[in-house]
Simulated scan of single mutants.
Amino acid sequence: MTRRPTIHDVAREAGVSTATVDRVLNAREKVREDTARRVYEAARLVGYHATPLIGQRVQMDLPRLRLGVVLHKEKQAFYQTFKTEIERAVAQATGLRASAIIEFAPSQTPADFAALMDGLATRVDAVAATAVTHPEVTEAVLRLNAKGIPCFALLNDFAQGVRQNYLGLNNMKIGRIAAHLIAISSHQAGKIAVFVGGYRWHGHELRETGFRSYFREYAPQFTVLDTLVNLETRQLTYEATLDLLNRHPDLRGIYCAGGGMEGAIAALREVRQPGEVTLVVNELTPESRAALISRYVGMAIATPLGKLCADLVTVAAEAVRDGITPLQGQHFLQPDLYLPESV
């Protein structure tokens, strides 16, 4: 008959005394966090019967972080991956009892984002969102601040001056990276098109600005056409791309600064050969990956979601611990760049 692991086995595995294990198990005295975690891991490894109880004791002494996150475009692969990475980040957080409530805005209207952010106020310690830039959203952030709840802007830097921090890419730089790839990939001068999702995405505006500034500075032989708004939808982007290709036979490149890239990919597949028009998109999804492999996409500029979510948990916990500060910041991440030969 197999011997049942004892408290002595746990102590031996953890490299501590049985008294220390007893203190962790019965919460008799305060034990250092790293020591308590070592005891818990040892109990788990040896199969100690009270491992779940030790885990609870370890968690009880940790500071709590209840993170509320508002995303949008629930059906898109990118945002489902975003949700998964948030859940992974809170599960793997050390030194915290972290949890997350994740909700999806039914549309991109400011009122929908604001309503969800307000609704989280009684259930969380900090809020983060991928909201549009709009006074209604700013007012929601102010209401959260008044309740002592810090708010973080993700991907799109909304509510500047009142939000606690922005986490995402340096969007001006992202636009210039996209322009650089298109300029060096196009062997003849011609027209360049750029799509943005709408007028309320500050990040898209910055990408467009960086995109145009690069061409003015380094590739003036190209003509950047008037910006097109695609509302981040596949169908609008598809129809607009077909129209562009029909009206501008010398179209050399397209940059989708926001969503809707699936429509541009589909249009190019219909009427152009791979590489005839250089398409740059944002984020690596099943669609953009397939288009990179078939060379209908020249580059995908991706947000490192795993790092973004881990950093969000860290800065949110610090803000909850230290309180809202009037000194807001920007937390820029390095983009992941994918080319046809790197996927």
Score class of each variant (00 low, 15 high):
residue 168 G to T: 03
residue 172 M to S: 13
residue 173 K to G: 02
residue 173 K to E: 14
residue 173 K to W: 06
residue 174 I to S: 03
residue 174 I to F: 09
residue 174 I to T: 05
residue 174 I to C: 03
residue 174 I to P: 01
residue 177 I to H: 10
residue 177 I to D: 06
residue 178 A to R: 02
residue 178 A to H: 03
residue 179 A to G: 09
residue 179 A to I: 04
residue 180 H to K: 14
residue 181 L to E: 14
residue 182 I to N: 00
residue 183 A to K: 04
residue 184 I to H: 12
residue 186 S to W: 07
residue 186 S to D: 08
residue 187 H to N: 12
residue 188 Q to A: 15
residue 188 Q to L: 15
residue 190 G to I: 04
residue 192 I to P: 02
residue 192 I to K: 06
residue 196 V to S: 01
residue 196 V to D: 00
residue 197 G to H: 08
residue 198 G to W: 09
residue 199 Y to S: 13
residue 200 R to I: 12
residue 200 R to D: 13
residue 200 R to A: 12
residue 201 W to N: 14
residue 202 H to V: 04
residue 204 H to R: 07
residue 205 E to P: 00
residue 206 L to Y: 06
residue 206 L to P: 08
residue 209 T to P: 00
residue 210 G to E: 02
residue 211 F to D: 01
residue 212 R to V: 14
residue 212 R to I: 12
residue 212 R to A: 06
residue 213 S to W: 02
residue 213 S to T: 14
residue 215 F to Q: 05
residue 218 Y to W: 14
residue 219 A to P: 05
residue 219 A to K: 00
residue 220 P to G: 08
residue 223 T to M: 09
residue 223 T to S: 15
residue 224 V to W: 00
residue 227 T to E: 07
residue 228 L to N: 05
residue 229 V to Y: 13
residue 229 V to Q: 11
residue 231 L to Y: 08
residue 231 L to T: 10
residue 232 E to M: 08
residue 235 Q to E: 15
residue 236 L to A: 11
residue 237 T to K: 03
residue 238 Y to P: 10
residue 240 A to Y: 07
residue 240 A to D: 14
residue 241 T to N: 08
residue 241 T to L: 07
residue 242 L to T: 06
residue 242 L to F: 05
residue 243 D to I: 01
residue 243 D to M: 09
residue 246 N to Y: 14
residue 249 P to D: 09
residue 250 D to V: 09
residue 252 R to V: 12
residue 253 G to W: 03
residue 254 I to D: 01
residue 255 Y to Q: 08
residue 257 A to W: 04
residue 257 A to Y: 03
residue 259 G to F: 03
residue 259 G to I: 03
residue 261 M to L: 08
residue 263 G to M: 04
residue 264 A to P: 15
